[in-house]
Design a binder for these strands. Structure first.
Lengths: 146, 146
DNA sequence: ATAAATTCCTATTATATCGGTAGGAATTAT
DNA sequence: ATAATTCCTACCGATATAATAGGAATTTAT
């Protein structure tokens, strides 16, 4: 399961992608209210997204948040990694955070590892393609289907 | 990431599948030593696998564990579910343990849900096909490749 | 019958993570 | 100056993880 942080982050990003017509920043409290996210908790989440370069902010009165990258450059894989760490199900098949399984006898010939490597590749591939744009397209498509 | 319990369980099962030529039970301590798993911890794991019907045991002197099902009927998906619960990354896309996301406004038209449903289907499909037999075949194949 | 070896069962523990709250400092528009 | 907002640090309770400890129950071998 992904953490609530990740889930909230994705929802907030999608909301910003939909709402951000001009470049007017949108306040934390507005996002929190619309997306049913605890306000203070969301505060911390948006800060992380900002420091990771996905969001920009304006401080002070009439301040708020807005997308820093284009909606088709922001994908679920990156957001998940930011909050929940590696996507892989085994430490020995992560690309960026590789760690040997201490109990493993022969990593190079491990059938279990081979399975989880396939799963990782497929999952990352799917989540990389799940951009904000793609997510919005899917929601649109579902609404049109009766 | 899967838990160590799941990882240990899979390793123990593969070991039993490989070692179980006759029907002689194999002792916890032998599995623990061979697979580098803390003995007492493995004890609890094997008990769960037994109660789930994957293993059988003989008690007392010369007792131990052995597969209850055929190696091609035991797959990683089932083992993961047993120890780590649902495989899906969102509660609203699990088949067996469905739970609504409390913050969600419109589940039926949720683009995020749609993405994670795809991921779930693909992952479960791959893990269902990852039987003990398949795992052993993969290891064999890798050893033959130089 | 007895001893030895083993699974089975119940508690306990240490550590970390998750989900969230609290309070205030810094910044900016009006 | 004031009001509104982001930014930052610290804290907290609950739960899960990865074990460990100790002994009861069971069975085989002698």
């Amino acid at each position: 399961m992904i953490s609530k942080k990740t889930k909230y982050a994705i929802n907030a990003l999608v909301y910003l992608a939909k709402e951000n017509k001009g470049t007017e920043p949108i306040q934390i409290s507005k996002i929190a209210e619309s997306e049913n996210i605890p306000r203070k908790f969301l505060e911390a989440i948006l800060l992380v997204l900002k420091n990771a370069g996905l969001l920009s902010s304006r401080k002070g009165k009439a301040g708020g948040y807005f997308l820093h990258k284009s909606p088709d450059e922001i994908n679920i894989a990156d957001v998940m990694r930011l909050f929940d760490g590696p996507i892989a199900l085994l430490p020995c098949v992560t690309h960026n955070y590789y760690e040997r399984c201490e109990e493993c006898k022969d990593e190079a010939n491990c059938g279990i590892r081979s399975v989880f490597a396939d799963v990782r590749n497929e999952t990352v591939n799917m989540l990389k393609h799940a951009t904000l744009t793609e997510i919005m397209h899917r929601a649109e498509a579902m609404k049109k289907e009766i």
